[in-house]
Design a protein around this nucleic acid. Structure first.
Lengths: 183, 183
DNA sequence: GGATGCATGTAAGGGGTTACATGATTTT
DNA sequence: AAAATCATGTAACCCCTTACATGCATCC
């Protein structure tokens, strides 16, 4: 199992449709887990069949209707069990770092371009995530927010995502600078 | 394809056996790509069949013999093509961040324990990586090394890995502190 | 009238994980 | 004598990606 728990976590304390989850698991927001829409719809069906989620049809006007999903008690228990179980090691796979590792076989300008592309993407993601975190804080200072808010999980996770993006930005700038100085 | 290019990059400028690659792709060292030994041996066979790698038997005394692999010209070309092609987005999957996101459904002490476990692992990995980078620099300052060394790819990649680990350490400390203050 | 966003899937195939297997040699 | 290290795989299964598919509504 893999996506399962990420989905359960996303649906903790709120109901979302497959489409809303697609956006959540797609770009910017989740620097910690990625999934395609096809995978999401398939996994949502499984989770519902297993009784960890329930789906409700929501009638909309001016838009197609949607089915939103909510955690069941079993789903919440499963999440708690997951949290208590030994944490599997991270799985990172980043082609860009492989390309940097193979720098010796590459044309420097080609590699620099790849670094600059990633830099631009990461800057955009970072700005988005920053705004999301500010929205969660809702005017409060971080300290105040973390002491008073009821559910700080998304803020903790989002902060980790932002650290990742800040590093990505710094590293791309640094590495492309190093390569430029050598050529 | 996926592991393919990570393997080619690892074999750039040196010959390694499946077992040596296992260690490289296993723990500490590679914070950028993970693979199991089974997967490695299977992929090495494929790469050899495709003519991107050649294997040579190396007779050892006091140890089982091994087969080391080296890049062919085709392999080197394939690496260069890979570097020039659009870079696929990163794939991160970290159960620990999912657990943090689901903080609201968890017993705080259980989550704190998970954060502390990861903290210890990351500290150990970071020390190892730090020593590896120091070995590469070989007494020189970073600036001097990056300006003079022939093949700086592994150093660029390793530096990114270390940034990741430093963040992991900082985040685990911060998040567990936040949770302790609230309970 | 065309592009974009909302909304939800099916089918096929490739990549990766988990479990199982073997055997020699060195260290404790 | 047992445990750890070196060394290399096979087999089954699950997860995930890629390609394909549909249809309505709003925005430009």
């Amino acid at each position: 199992m893999a996506l399962r728990h990420a989905l359960l976590a996303a649906l903790l304390d709120r109901e979302l449709s497959g489409y809303q989850l697609t956006k959540l698991f797609d770009l910017a927001a989740s620097s910690f887990w990625h999934a395609s829409s096809q995978q999401l719809y398939a996994e949502l069906a499984k989770l519902e069949a297993d009784g960890l989620l329930t789906g409700h049809e929501v009638v909309q006007h001016g838009r197609p209707n949607k089915r939103v999903f909510a955690l069941t008690d079993n789903g919440r228990d499963e999440l708690a069990r997951f949290t208590a179980a030994p944490t599997k090691p991270i799985s990172i796979r980043d082609d860009l770092i492989v390309k940097a590792y193979a720098e010796h076989a590459a044309d420097p300008s080609v590699l620099i371009k790849q670094l600059e592309d990633r830099l631009a993407q990461s800057r955009a993601k970072d700005e988005f995530l920053q705004s999301q975190l500010a929205r969660l804080r809702d005017g409060k200072s971080e300290e105040e927010y973390l002491a008073s808010a009821e559910n700080i999980g998304p803020y903790l996770a989002g902060t980790r995502g932002r650290m990742y993006l800040r590093d990505e930005i710094d590293w791309c700038e640094w590495a492309s600078g190093v390569l430029r100085n050598r050529s």
